[in-house]
Amino acid sequence: MTSARNNLLVILALIALWQLAYWAIGDLALRPPLDTLCKAAALIASEGFTAHLAETMRAFALALGIAVVVGVGLGFCLGMSRLAGEVGEPLLVSFYSLPKITLYPIVLLIFGIGMPSKIAFGAIHGIMPIAIFTLGALRNLPPVLGRTSRALRLNRWQSAWTVLLPAARPEIFTGLRLGFSLTLIGTLLGEMFASQRGIGFLLMQAIGLHDTDVIMALTLLIVAFAITASMALLAVDKRLRHGAA
């Protein structure tokens, strides 16, 4: 209860900060919170917006699905063997920390302009953090779990599915939270470059036209979505951890 109240206070503080920034900087490249909210509402109601939103959501959902499956799978494969983990982890980490935006031309050359490129770009942002957290989660499991599985005569696959994965779930979920955010930014970046549809495309168009109203409104919508999702995921995360403790 108090945590929800505190979160609300943070939101109010952010809005206050925003309003202050507006008073300080002025109309040049900023709009006040209330105007932005109205503009965002108008934008949602406007013709064609739903189609753009649906496009982005579809790309994001697919990208996230790929990122979760590939990321958890990759992390699990590497996490099952100590040597594989030692070989793979630095590679995962260095790929995670690269400016992936420079790879965008290559992604475009391979997948062409449109949906597949966006999905690919979203997924490559999300896979690595999920894989890294999954790998770390498995490595940090107490060795007694592996011995227990053997005592229960579980084979490798049964042990992974019924013991290791559930035990590692809280930590993996933390990776999923981060993966969620990064997949979203990846998908949006994908749309900003080479797409004729989607929220990212609208944003890029607005930036090109210096349409501050639309830029602010879209950013607000994205931020609101990201924060809401993040809070929900954090709540699940906490429940998983309390269950585990």
Binding site: I185, I215, L218, A226
Partner: peptide, 20 residues
């Protein structure tokens, strides 16, 4: 109270603030 905002932060396309 700030924890969820930190994670959500990385979903924000900061490049959108470039004009600002």
């Amino acid at each position: 109270a700030m924890a969820p905002f930190f994670t959500a932060y990385y979903a924000v396309p900061v490049y959108a603030f470039y004009p600002l």
